[in-house]
Structure formats: C-alpha cells, structure tokens
Design a protein around this nucleic acid. Structure first.
Lengths: 128, 128
DNA sequence: CAGGATCCACTCTGATACTG
DNA sequence: CAGTATCAGAGTGGATCCTG
C-alpha cells in the first residue's frame, strides 16, 4: 500500500463514495463565491450586515444578502433583528456553523500550503 | 470565549483572511461539479478513463475529460499514456492530490455528520 | 478505448435602482 | 441601516456527433 496515511481511518474511505450527493450539497453551499468568506469573517463573533459587507469587500449587497440567507437556511448562521431605528441585524455562526468553520480552516490551510506548488504546476502545464 | 476550539490554532484564524483569493482558487477547483467525485474515486489506486467514467456515473465524457485535465494542470493527478492498441491511459493522484484527498474526506465526514441536521433546517426554513 | 468539437440551456453573479 | 427587484453578461454543464 503506497500511502498508508489514506488508510488510517477505516470508514473514511467509504465516506466519499457513499454520500456523494450529500457532499455535493455541502460543496454547493461552501463552494459558491462568498460563503466561505462570510463564514470566516464571522468567525466566533457577531457581525452586522454592513460590517460584514466591508469585511468581505468587494462583495455586493445582493450577494451578501443571498449568501447569508443560504447560510441561515442551512442552520449555519443565525439572524437576529433588533427592532430599532435605524434597523439593526446581527449575524453569527451557529454551533454547526462553527464546526464547519473548523473544516473550512483546514481547507484554507491546505490551500495556503499548496498554493505556490499549484501555481507553478499550472504555469508548467500551460507552457506545454 | 464561547468556542475555544476555534482559537486552538494561533495562525489558523488568519488563514481565512489572508489567502482569500487562494482559498477561492482551490475551491473553484474542488467546488466544481465533479472534481471531488473523481478525486475520491481515484483514491490511492490507478484508474483508466472509462473505469473512472463508470465509477463516477453519471458524469459525461466531456466533463470527466475536462475535470481530469484541470486536476492534472494543478498537479493533483498524473496522466500516463501507454502507446498500445487500443490506447490506454492511466490516471492516479499525485502526493499533492493525496493530501487533498485527506482534506476532502474530512469535508465529506462533516457533510455526513451534519446532513440530516442541514436538511431539517432547510425544511424548517422553507416552511416559514 | 480515450477523447475532441459544437451547440444549447441554465445558473450564477454583478450593476443599478429603489424601499421600509 | 438593511435590505429587495430587475436586467444583462459570463461561466458551467449536458447532449450529441466525430476521430486516431
């Protein structure tokens, strides 16, 4: 067996096969253009709409709104409306959202670790 | 601090902020419709084109071809052509691809663990 | 067997303008 | 402040046909 690291987890090898639609579902959520950005910007603190908008620039109002609604729908984010003037709405990650944040950060870590290698691979490939 | 787990890794909190374009780049690769499926089907073994096609059904020829080329471009997959008749081409994950497989399996694990919760959240949200 | 080329339908996103 | 509505453009994937 060439790469024992992959075999370490007994059931993990099946997890890709089995729940393909599931995985696709999740990836369609976090694989869109802004979900990961918003999740990371939220982190473990509460943020307001325009605050997130600034932090996630250059996201548009429309996309931030849509992204937050999607995350809320999946139970990853809570939306709290304070009935004041001017209106104030707070967003925060749920515990499920926080657990996803962890996974996403692992992914981000992998991305950073492999970014330069990937970029040079691309350059080499395109030069053929 | 409500969720110390998030704070565990000193630099990890920055990894989302810092390399946003990086992360997006990676997510555009694995976030497309088929990359994750193909990566999982490859696992740590070598596969031929039509073999992958069957395993990844209902992927089309066009998309399998495009997906594999993308993965090869990023140095995640090797493509080995055997000059025989009929032609035979073998695909396998590189070590970089295998390291991504690990991360992807974590993601798949998260997806499985949270699938039912997410689905019921969606139902509840849509019923409002 | 392992693809490439073409055409089409759909989705996702951005820009802009407007509202409670 | 925190959104919604509408429109147009780009990208992405599927179906089909063809080839060394």
């Amino acid at each position: 067996m060439a790469h024992p690291i992959i075999q370490a987890n007994g059931t993990a090898s099946d997890r890709c096969e089995e729940g393909r639609d599931l995985v696709r579902d999740v990836l369609e959520r976090i694989g869109d253009k802004w979900s990961v950005v918003v999740i990371c910007q939220l982190g473990d603190t509460t943020r307001r709409f325009n605050e997130l908008r600034r932090m996630s620039a250059p996201i548009t109002q429309r996309m931030l709104s849509a992204t937050l609604r999607g995350l809320e729908r999946d139970g990853l984010v809570t939306r709290t409306v304070h009935d004041t003037t001017p209106p104030r709405v707070d967003y925060a990650l749920t515990s499920r959202g926080l657990s996803l944040l962890k996974v996403v950060r692992d992914l981000a870590g992998w991305a950073e670790d492999n970014a330069s290698g990937i970029l040079s691979s691309r350059t080499a490939f395109d030069a053929r």
